[in-house]
Design a protein around this nucleic acid. Structure first.
Lengths: 194, 194
DNA sequence: CGAAATATGACGATCGGTCTATATAGTATG
DNA sequence: CATACTATATAGACCGATCGTCATATTTCG
């Protein structure tokens, strides 16, 4: 019946990191949240804390990637997809009492160096999200370089909007930024004739 | 003479928080970096760790606010001001080996609740920066509501760009996002006739 | 039954932040 | 010049928390 112990540890870790950041989370907290004793963690994650954190972050990344994928494919055009994803993030943030955010941001800000496995996973996730936006816009006819820059801007503005929303406890901010980004993408799709 | 002891503590705290986040910094580190003995910290900051952190964050906020103020007033129009500030941030990030970022983001992500003095200082700073952008754009003729939304987006995208730049060790990303934001502002200043 | 997989929680070395004493300036006063 | 006094700064004891380890139990299955 220990089917879910590992999963509970991962979930607890992910939740706690969102609340207090990488270094604000202790093993004791993770264990008491997941209802497991101390040694069990080192059975499931021989690498110790960094191992659980990596797993928790990967889980969060995968979830976010799936939702973004869905938003982009289900939307009629990239601009609508962007708005849909920002709206989803805003809703999630409000539903979780502002205990929600990007899975990688807290790691990047807390991690000491860029040499760790954690850091490269962060980079990979950011690159993938950027590529997804870019590909969607390129497929819709946006020039490659412009699409790349726009994609970077979209990812950055969501990242920042999540932080600001949490700081001000105002999720509607995310939606407003998403609208602006949607407008930006729309204009790139139908450039003004000169 | 200990004329600069307090200042050294504040500087060390600010630098270390940028590196490892609020909870990743220990008093021992702050003290060894600032060359002061243990008890001296509680003389200068009776409130303990939270007190030093607050002072360090305020120092960072003030510095950023001054630079932003300069960029916006010296520029010929808000779009140029935005680009100038993003460029300055990119340069600072590259110059410090990517040990630079927003003074408030690490606090927001690491702080547990929104009731602390730290949290309200974060909110105040974000609000002030947003207001500065908004006012500059309103003065340049942008409608109030639009200016507010644009200002939010600018702050958010810089916030996010700093995180992404650090994660990927690529400061040019900040400049690219700044260019996109500049374009956005320019279009808001000279709306297309329909 | 026996063997592999999982769970358990006590343990130690280290480090965390906080606080109460103690020492050093610097200045005022007779 | 000496003493008293106060602001400033230092010193280190304190206790609880931290992470990682390990020897021992318990379960799960062939």
């Amino acid at each position: 019946m220990a089917k879910g112990t590992k999963e509970r540890m991962i979930e607890a870790t992910a939740r706690l990191i969102q609340l207090r950041g990488l270094h604000g989370v202790s093993l004791s907290e993770i264990l008491s949240e997941s209802g497991a004793p101390r040694g069990s963690l080192y059975f499931h994650f021989p690498g110790g804390k960094e191992s659980v954190v990596l797993a928790a972050m990967q889980a969060g990344i995968n979830e976010a990637t799936e939702i973004l994928e869905a938003c982009l494919t289900e939307a009629t055009d990239p601009a609508a997809g962007v708005r849909a994803f920002f709206d989803a993030a805003a809703e999630e943030m409000a539903n979780t009492e502002y205990a929600f955010g990007c899975p990688v941001a807290p790691i990047i800000l807390d991690a000491p160096g860029m040499d760790s496995e954690l850091a490269s996973a962060c980079r990979a996730a950011l690159d993938e999200w950027t590529a997804m936006y870019r590909n969607a816009m390129v497929a819709a006819g946006v020039e490659h370089g412009r699409a790349e820059r726009l994609a970077l801007t979209i990812v950055a503005s969501l990242e920042g909007a999540l932080i600001m929303a949490r700081g001000g406890r105002d999720a509607s901010l995310i939606r407003e930024v998403g609208d602006e980004m949607g407008m930006m993408v729309s204009q790139a799709l139908t450039p003004p004739h000169h």
